[in-house]
Design a protein around this nucleic acid. Structure first.
Lengths: 335, 335
DNA sequence: GTGAAAGCGCTAACAC
DNA sequence: GTGTTAGCGCTTTCAC
């Protein structure tokens, strides 16, 4: 596959097989090689011969060179705030899986929650890929609109008018969670709010506000993390609620943890419901009831949208259904 | 940043700024633009002028074209079995963070635990990047040696003679865990084995075998997952051990879960120690004692190795230290 | 210090 | 059906 040749510098120099090499070895022209490899019009015999030589030489096309002429690099970009967050890990998984299926490469940029890095990455990737999938919970609509080309960008888990997007039906999810809790007899519930500047957090709060016939205690100013959940745990125990709905599963896990530490049995003393249904939700004790968000599917759908593989219509805003996964952390209210 | 021009097809066509455009606008030649942008010899005045025009036009270099001539793409590849596994998510985080710092792009391929996909990805990425970081717990040494170019590949968390690698001091970690348990009075412990074909699993078992003065009960044939841990939980309760060391934290979490469900209090009835110290370890109930493996650092170090940024010596095998993080899941043995 | 020109590896007209 | 040639966007000799 690789040949090494001596180098004046005394080092080792790796020489890679090119179309030229294949053409020479197969006794045809470079264009014939190109055609044989990319599915152009070639005689079956020639194609087979070229293919044979190509594999024998371990030829791997240089995608950069190909992209230079075709205008398509065969690469995509994915920008996420934090790969360590299981939510985004799931999204990334969905994207890479689909990309592999359609033979595309994926550049992943982890911006470490920094909106500036997000915009930078968008500029760089926008130039060097066929399109980019962007998870940007924090950046402003204006910044996004200014930095993103609607032709080659798809927003994931966020909607901004003017930009294609794939989002989950958050309101529907909230509605199911609330209905579930009401059916269990809960009338007063706490809601651990997400970051005020987060689009998803705003969606949840809005959906919750319209869920009437329920006394809602919003708990704000907490980090959307396990630690934030620990704090929230004490707050809910200090309030007259019988259930708590968390901004996401990480927070819910923190609540669960604090409740256990304080000896408050879940769900007897307090019901806990999470959001996102990351894989951890099934691993907690007790297992966490959570609103299931199609994270990986959103990634895959976004990719299809980007590549125009999606249905004929110019559907630029996809809403994916959510569901409620009932586990052991929610139960009947005991006043 | 982007200009749109009408297209005969009636569609919209995105035109990107090139060196040509910048040169024209700045009233200089393309080579001067190139020099100004890449730090060549240009008069300060010219450089400033070019830079100004470039930013005004939103010029972003086409890395593919640049790579075609320089031979360096500025891109790296990372191959992992599963991004959803927090262990690899951490590795990926370390790689992307370091890559961003040195201004490189990262292609991430999730092979879905498929060794064949791993080798394919290696071939493709090897051709289209400056080097690849490979997490391949399962592939055989021979396959790896055949497919990987030692000049442009670094193995992460695995050692194969002949290939550069970055590994954690697994034996040291095992030793610390064992010493900890012994100090707490444990004399009979169970070990939940990892997959037999996994390099890391073999390392752990080997290190454990030499940890004398301890009765070891190996539990094999279990998946290295939460579910595998659930099964292991019942097995340990059915055996005369007072502590269990798990292949990794996911397994340990499963054990913890099953123990709790069966009413076995941790650590009073049974001590549990995990491996890897993924972020979940701190979120379990009780928080999990675990061997800390520098996952993200391994990624960063591997990247430096690849780019030759590491110390002068031709050190091709790095061993990173491990540590033991003692949390509440381990305590004194009660016979 | 700057410009003209060659060419990286590849595909897409265009001839034959 | 196949070969020849131009050129994608960029860097890098080589003259000046």
């Amino acid at each position: 596959m690789l040949a090494r040749a001596g180098d004046e510098g005394g080092g080792i120099h790796v020489v890679r097989t090119t179309v030229q090499d294949v053409a020479r070895a197969a006794g045809v022209s470079v264009s014939t090689v190109s055609r044989a490899l990319t599915g152009g019009i070639v005689s079956p015999a020639t194609r087979e011969a070229v293919l044979e030589v190509a594999t024998r030489l371990g030829y791997q096309p240089n995608r950069a060179a190909r992209g230079l002429i075709t205008g398509r690099t065969g690469n995509l970009g994915l920008i996420v705030p934090d790969l360590r967050n299981p939510f985004f890990a799931d999204v990334a998984k969905g994207v890479t899986a689909r990309a592999r299926a359609v033979d595309h490469g994926v550049f992943i940029t982890d911006t470490d929650e920094d909106p500036v890095a997000e915009l930078e990455a968008l500029a760089t990737l926008g130039r060097n890929t066929d399109g980019v999938l962007l998870c940007s919970p924090r950046a402003s609509d204006a910044d996004l609109l200014a930095a993103a080309d609607p032709e080659t960008t798809v927003l994931l888990h966020r909607r901004v008018p003017g930009l294609p997007s794939v989002v989950a039906d958050i309101a529907g999810g909230i509605r199911q969670a609330v209905r579930h809790l009401r059916a269990l007899g809960h009338r007063r519930i706490a809601y651990v709010c997400g970051p005020e500047d987060s689009w998803a957090a705003q969606q949840r709060l809005a959906a919750l506000s319209t869920a009437g016939d329920l006394e809602l205690l919003p708990l704000g100013g907490l980090a959307p993390t396990f630690d934030g959940g620990l704090l929230a745990g004490d707050l809910v125990l200090d309030s007259p609620v019988t259930a708590v709905l968390a901004y996401n599963d990480l927070v819910a896990l923190g609540v669960l943890h604090r409740l256990a530490a304080r000896g408050a049995v879940v769900p007897e003393r307090m019901s806990v419901v999470g959001f996102d249904d990351v894989s951890l939700a099934a691993m907690s004790h007790p297992p966490l009831t959570s609103v299931a968000v199609p994270k990986d599917r959103a990634g895959a759908v976004g990719l299809d949208l980007l590549l125009g593989r999606t249905g004929a219509t110019a559907e630029r805003e996809m809403v994916l259904p959510t569901g409620l996964v009932v586990r052991a952390s929610s139960g009947v209210a005991r006043p």
